[in-house]
């Protein structure tokens, strides 16, 4: 006997609870709304928060794109896409502009998002103050009191140690002049994309049981000091080895044989569309994947 799963896997009660949390999150930008994170058919830490949001908002008309660190084809992205497709029947795509819901881990696509799209980001640690305060009870109080000295202190210590803020990814941001928020481990390069974004951005942390949101056209400022302004990763003078794109986030690859360093677009669907546009055939080494 083949059991038919319910549309979008979840029971309606679970969806309702998550939907209510999402609406509250949108109404209080950057505030982490607690929710009853469900057991999922994937392990916690593999995108259960993002998946729970996707399954609760998705409808028959939606087109879904899932990316994992810029790639549409990684195991995690493919499996999440398959799970949603099998339980809902919605169309999936790798084309950013075609998608109505984009679930992502650690990247925001290079192609600008539109008003009709919803970005869903998977979050491992939603609490920007966790590194300075392990107690959830206390961090909730710090948010309530608008006391973000811990976040500033973290950046200050990095400057003292390394001469610059060394956050790499997940650089804390101030949302709507009130809440300091973890933008999920997106590179600093992507922080500007959530400021005054045209698309609604939802964040889901399954393990930590939090949902938060940034509505479109909301002020999002990366934390920085006057004398140490916020800096993004730069790829000056570098370009993608396949499509020659510049001004995008590039991966650094070391050629095992020659030892030389090469750069390639992190956003694979963007790279592919650039190649198609220019009619270039690219040869990619896949031996290591076999």
């Amino acid at each position: 006997m083949q059991l038919q799963t319910h549309f979008a896997l979840f029971d309606e009660g679970s969806k309702k609870e998550i939907r209510r949390a999402i609406l509250k999150g949108v109404a209080i930008p950057g505030y982490q709304v607690p929710f009853a994170s469900r057991e999922m058919p994937i392990a916690r830490g593999w995108g259960t928060g993002g998946l729970q949001i996707t399954l609760s908002i998705i409808g028959k008309q939606d087109v879904l794109k899932v990316i994992d660190q810029g790639s549409d084809e990684s195991v995690n992205a493919v499996n999440i896409k398959k799970l949603v497709n099998k339980t809902t029947g919605v169309k999936t795509t790798i084309e950013t502009s075609e998608a109505t819901i984009i679930q992502s881990r650690h990247r925001i696509p290079e192609v600008p998002l539109t008003e009709e799209q919803i970005m869903v980001l998977q979050v491992p640690i939603p609490e920007p103050l966790r590194w300075v305060e392990p107690s959830e009870f206390k961090t909730k109080k710090l948010h309530a009191e608008n006391d973000y000295s811990g976040a500033w202190l973290m950046l200050f210590e990095q400057i003292m140690k390394y001469g610059k803020t060394a956050t790499d990814a997940d650089h804390p941001v101030l949302v709507h002049d009130r809440y300091v928020m973890a933008p999920s481990p997106i590179p600093r390069f992507d922080n500007s994309k959530i400021h005054q974004s045209e698309a609604l951005i939802l964040f889901g942390a399954g393990r930590e049981k939090k949902i938060y949101a940034i509505p479109p056209y909301t002020n999002v400022v990366s934390l920085a000091f006057e004398d140490y302004p916020f800096e993004v990763e730069t790829f000056d003078g570098k370009q993608c080895r396949l499509c020659s794109a510049t001004n995008v986030f590039l991966d650094e690859l070391v050629n095992q044989e020659t030892g030389s360093t090469e750069y390639q677009c992190n956003d694979t669907s963007y790279c592919l569309s650039m190649l198609n546009e220019d009619g270039i055939t690219a040869e990619v080494e896949v031996a290591h994947a076999r």
């Binding site: 309606e12 939907r19 609406l23 008003e115």
Partner: peptide
């Protein structure tokens, strides 16, 4: 209910 929710979500975020 999904459609109504998405309407609310769209309107609440805009």
């Amino acid at each position: 209910t999904q459609e109504v929710f998405r309407t609310f979500l769209h309107c609440m975020s805009r």
